[in-house]
Nucleic acid binder design. Structure first.
Lengths: 168, 168
DNA sequence: AACAGGTGTTACACATGTAAAAGATTCTCC
DNA sequence: GGAGAATCTTTTACATGTGTAACACCTGTT
């Protein structure tokens, strides 16, 4: 059984500062490091389609809600700033993946929706992406995977409550 | 028991695309979302000291290895690019937290080390930071925390092997 | 009619990574 | 032994993506 990076960092701290309670570091450090490694790896099929993860998240939000969304809703849905959404929407529109329509009643708001090409792209890409992710996670047995999912869900509920990551 | 965000996203996908195997999404999505929420929150004590997480990681690497490091070693240690390290080192040097010394034998390399002020800052900040992180995680019972740490360690070993996150 | 508030976009600052550059060392082959 | 090539370490230049804050525009209210 070999050590992971966080374990060896923790050992270094213990050597230099014995008695330090490194518990939080072991959990948070591992979450951050896993996220960094996954993000570096997981975008391979997306990149092949000329998208990055943030753009795909936008397309995915439109596909899974199955209706037109406003830029503001998309920002909340993807946890990013309005400005970032504006910029990404422009790129996606230039690629012909989304279209926009302005609201008849309230001319401040815009409604953004997938074009047929955008919808087809998501439907083609998502299974590829999931298959790729499955292969990245294949080193873990099913029990560990579902255990992790469940416990991370628990943590996520706590964090959402505590840190106001609220939705809507 | 309430749902987390990922669970509700998965439910949306299932409604629109029944039979999709969303397993990888449930795990990776939660890891990413936890990391995002934690990073947003976890830097509070650091910010009070005028540092960001990346700069603190640099200082921490020097403190825990307890010796002078070269910029290249620091880049590998903190998993960031050499250019980013150069820029951060300049800022930290201007703050008087680190000092540099050029190698006697090989004039290409520089040796960077903590000043007394830098060392004191880390020793003061790290316990604060860990206490803060402990409070952020306090919603989880000890069993869940250690379970998560262990399983994430397992995942991390897999990812490091698979994705070449090798060290040294 | 003025105003308070909401929505989307633009301007700017900032952090990061990739790639090129600059400086220094080591190797190779004559 | 030495000149040039290859390599290594760090820094600089540039492109990119993001968030904050200011802005323009619109609505509904008083």
């Amino acid at each position: 059984m070999t050590d992971d990076i966080v374990a060896s960092v923790v050992r270094q701290w213990q050597a230099v500062n014995p008695g330090l309670d490194t518990g939080p570091m072991e959990l948070i450090g591992r979450i951050n490091r896993c996220a960094a490694l996954l993000q570096q790896a997981e975008d391979a099929p997306l990149r092949a389609a000329g998208l990055n993860r943030a753009e795909f998240d936008l397309l995915g939000a439109m596909r899974r809600t199955d209706r037109e969304l406003t830029p503001g809703e998309l920002a909340r849905e993807t946890f990013s700033s309005g400005a970032a959404v504006t910029k990404r929407l422009r790129a996606l529109q230039e690629s012909g993946l989304i279209g926009r329509r302005s609201d008849a009643r309230d001319r401040r708001v815009a409604h953004v929706g997938l074009t047929e090409a955008g919808r087809d792209l998501v439907d083609r890409l998502l299974p590829e992406q999931l298959a790729y992710e499955r292969s990245v996670l294949s080193g873990l047995d099913e029990e560990t995977r579902s255990g992790l999912s469940g416990q991370l869900g628990e943590l996520l509920v706590q964090l959402e409550g505590r840190l106001g990551g609220g939705r809507r």
